[in-house]
Amino acid sequence: MIEFTVNGRKRSADVEPEMPLLWVLRDVLDVKGPKYGCGIAQCGACTVHLNGEPVRSCSVPASAAAGQNVLTIEGLAQRGRMHPVQKAWIDHQVPQCGYCQSGQIMAAVALLKKNPNPSDRDIDAAMTNLCRCGTYARIRTAIHAAAQSMKPAKA
């Protein structure tokens, strides 16, 4: 039995220690935000935060999450209010098919946490998730916009 915290709730799963976190989330705990795209950490559709760090959950064994904090797209909104990155994604009409966007948003949230004012180059380096619909230009714009909106208001 592996126990860990998902989006602030204690969860447990009776799974093999090597079962990837992605499949524990999706098929055992019914947390469907993280998506399967490749299974080899290439596409990033499965991106979640493990103790605040973005990871590709298709390639993280369940055992590595034991006792840790997992945050998925479902846990991003606070008290019913969307995260500024989610809002920016709507303002800039980023998603097309939407399949990669849970992973894109989790990657962007992690980037902004580390680097509240990323340059284009920083975005290039951090945002390596694949989007087959080609929403990249809007992802870039939305990250810059979210960075602006998250700046503490000047006194």
């Binding site: 998506k35 479902e74 991003l76 989610q86 994604w89 939407g98």
Partner: peptide
């Protein structure tokens, strides 16, 4: 016009075929 499907797509709603979940489902 803002797309009607986007709010659900930024909140991780189970919209896709891969997300279908039924009682007693096998894989």
């Amino acid at each position: 016009a803002n797309r009607l499907d986007i709010p659900d797509k930024v909140t991780g709603k189970p919209l896709f075929g891969i997300d279908v979940q039924l009682p007693g489902m096998a894989y």
